[in-house]
Amino acid sequence: MANLILLVALLRLVGDNMRYPDKVYLLTRLPDDDPNGLNHQVSYQSQVVPANMQQVNLTFAPNGTVYNATVIRVYGRYQADAIGFNDEYVVGNNATTHEIQKVSHHEKQTAFYIIRNEVILHDE
């Protein structure tokens, strides 16, 4: 029986790695010591989590504007103020962070939406 439980646990881990093959940094803003200072820069606390990233075209605006977006799905319920991608995020360099435009919570999953740029359709 113990071997069966161990096998199920291992299969679950392998399955999660297949569904969430990427890693991202979920960034949460830290309280500001001097938000009015001349050299003020936002500080973040980071948490690395397995993720599934997908490039999609989405319509967020009521006027039908289409945007190229990255959807980051993570297993569980998470909150974040920004996202750092595993291959480009540098701690302390806010130029390597990405602003989150939308968050959706599902039963066992959280999806973060990051807008890359507007998609121009038919030379509008």
Rank of each mutant, 00 (worst) to 15 (best):
A2S: 11
A2Y: 09
N3Y: 11
L4A: 10
L4E: 10
L4V: 10
L4S: 08
I5V: 13
V8Y: 09
A9R: 10
A9T: 07
A9S: 12
L10W: 07
L11W: 05
L11Q: 06
R12H: 12
L13P: 00
L13K: 14
N17T: 08
N17M: 12
M18Q: 09
R19D: 08
P21S: 03
P21M: 01
D22P: 06
D22I: 02
D22L: 03
V24Q: 04
L26A: 06
T28Q: 13
P31L: 09
D32L: 09
D33V: 14
D33F: 07
D34W: 05
N39V: 02
N39S: 10
Y44C: 02
Y44V: 01
Q45F: 05
S46H: 12
V48M: 08
V49H: 03
A51C: 07
N52P: 01
N52M: 08
N52G: 07
M53T: 15
Q54V: 11
Q54N: 11
Q54C: 02
V56M: 07
V56C: 04
L58I: 11
T59A: 09
T59F: 00
T59R: 08
F60M: 11
A61P: 03
P62S: 14
P62Y: 01
P62V: 11
G64K: 05
N68F: 07
T70I: 15
T70P: 00
V71F: 06
V71Q: 13
I72S: 06
I72G: 03
I72F: 05
I72Q: 04
R73M: 07
V74Q: 05
Y75C: 08
G76L: 04
R77V: 14
Q79T: 15
G84Q: 01
D87R: 12
V90K: 00
G92T: 00
G92S: 01
G92H: 00
G92E: 00
N93F: 00
N94Q: 05
A95Q: 12
A95T: 09
A95L: 10
T96H: 00
T96A: 01
T97M: 00
H98M: 09
H98T: 04
E99V: 12
Q101D: 08
Q101S: 14
V103W: 04
H105Q: 14
H105R: 11
H106G: 12
Q109R: 09
Q109V: 10
Q109S: 11
T110I: 03
I115G: 03
R116L: 11
N117L: 05
N117E: 15
E118I: 07
I120Y: 06
I120P: 01
L121T: 15
H122R: 13
H122W: 10
D123C: 05
E124Y: 06
E124K: 14
